[in-house]
């Protein structure tokens, strides 16, 4: 089973949709939805306040994914970074 949770305000869904893990360091995107077959992972992502509409900046990819969301920074592993799907990558600066 695969959960695909769409957030409310999603415009232009076909533009530059990418998982966080595929971004380049320094790129930004807006969270479109969270995609994971694992409920615990979903819970963890939500606990970090990562929800549709939030802007995320990728700061580092190796050895872990580090990103900025709001005024906070988080580190996650690849599995979690794959589950965070962003849109409008590159469009916003």
């Amino acid at each position: 089973m695969r959960f695909r949770f769409r957030g409310n305000p999603v415009k232009n869904t076909c533009d530059n949709i990418l998982p966080l893990a595929k971004l380049k360091v320094g790129q930004k995107g807006v969270v479109a939805y969270l995609q994971t077959a694992n409920r615990q992972r979903l819970q963890k992502i939500m606990a970090m306040g990562i929800l549709p509409g939030k802007t995320i900046t990728l700061l580092q990819k190796f050895p872990s994914y580090v990103f900025q969301v709001g005024l906070s920074q988080f580190a996650v592993d690849r599995e979690l970074a794959e589950a965070i799907i962003l849109q409008d990558v590159d469009r916003i600066n």
Binding site: N38, V76, D77, E79, L80
Partner: peptide, 10 residues
């Protein structure tokens, strides 16, 4: 299960 890693970086 394989554990997953997430942590706030203060």
């Amino acid at each position: 299960d394989e554990p997953s890693f997430y942590m706030e970086i203060p």
